[in-house]
């Protein structure tokens, strides 16, 4: 497949510091919950090794779109996708694609931390074990490395056998991030990862995002526009303009440009708090 994007695909003005090419290319995507067309005509490229933020009012389809990227919506009966999403130029919805393998490559963090009811260690080791890692020393190394990358190692290194659910909400969220990192994903999708946790953990998660993007691509849905501005390199603004009509992508640009000189009046009105 050619690297050249079709002309209708919106590409943000590239900053030389973070343009490592496209990880995802989305072309003319429509998404349906049964008969309801929730998203329409989304064409966008998501940059590799960058943080991309999706913003917009509630119900604008940003989480739905996020879940399209690793086929999480497949789990909801009656949903349907039209258009095309490629990950490294391979069709995400292609017939030979194993959704489970896709979700290992494209990991996900949810609003509510959801550790497994098992020890901190086992939470992180679970994925690697499932993928065939058996050696204790190897698992130990993966657990330590993942917890370090998730900015939670110092807090849990002496209590690894304790239950994951005994941790605070913010620690649980970072444990979940470690669990995802343990299987070496290429992309991390984060669906409002900080909206239910304490400010210290928010800071730690924002810090780890900046560190992780050297190795992985991050896409975050957030209601917090300050957070989008702080952590992301690119920002996409989604909007459902009329109730019952599908939401669409209004503007997509480098975060610094979008938050200083948005090109679309609707983006400007939303980010300056004039509606939404």
């Amino acid at each position: 497949m050619s690297d050249k994007l079709p002309s209708h695909v919106v590409t943000p003005g590239a900053g030389p510091a973070y343009d490592h090419g496209d990880k995802f290319k989305v072309e003319k995507l429509d998404f349906f919950y049964g008969g309801f067309n929730a998203l329409t005509d989304i064409s966008v490229s998501i940059k590799r090794h960058a943080v991309t933020a999706f913003i917009g009012p509630s119900g604008c389809g940003k989480s739905t779109f996020l879940r399209c990227l690793n086929r999480m919506n497949d789990l909801i009966p009656g949903t349907r996708v039209e258009g095309r999403i490629t990950l490294d130029d391979h069709d995400v919805y292609g017939s030979g694609v194993d959704p489970v393998d896709l979700r290992r490559r494209v990991g996900m963090i949810f609003q509510q931390p959801n550790p497994f009811p098992m020890s901190i260690y086992d939470n992180v080791a679970y994925g690697p074990k499932l993928h065939g890692v058996r050696k204790k020393s190897e698992l130990d190394a993966i657990v330590e490395e993942s917890l370090k990358r998730a900015n939670v190692w110092k807090e849990v290194k002496d209590i690894l056998s304790r239950g994951g659910l005994t941790l605070s909400g913010g620690q649980q969220q970072r444990l979940c991030i470690a669990r995802v990192l343990a299987v070496e994903p290429e992309v991390l999708l984060m669906d409002e990862p900080c909206s239910a946790i304490d400010p210290t953990s928010v800071q730690k998660i924002e810090d780890l995002m900046a560190e992780l993007k050297d190795r992985i691509t991050i896409v975050i849905v957030t209601h917090n526009m300050q957070q989008a501005a702080r952590v992301s390199d690119y920002t996409a603004f989604f909007l459902q303009e009329v109730a019952g009509e599908p939401a669409h992508l209004v503007e997509y640009d480098r975060t610094a440009s979008l938050f200083t000189t948005p090109k679309d009046r609707r983006t400007e009105d939303y980010i300056t708090g004039r509606f939404g």
Binding site: M225, Q226, A229, F259, T260, T261, P262, T267, E268, I271, T272
Partner: peptide, 9 residues
Amino acid sequence: QFPVARDLR
């Protein structure tokens, strides 16, 4: 107030 866009400018 974290001004952005035209407010920031």
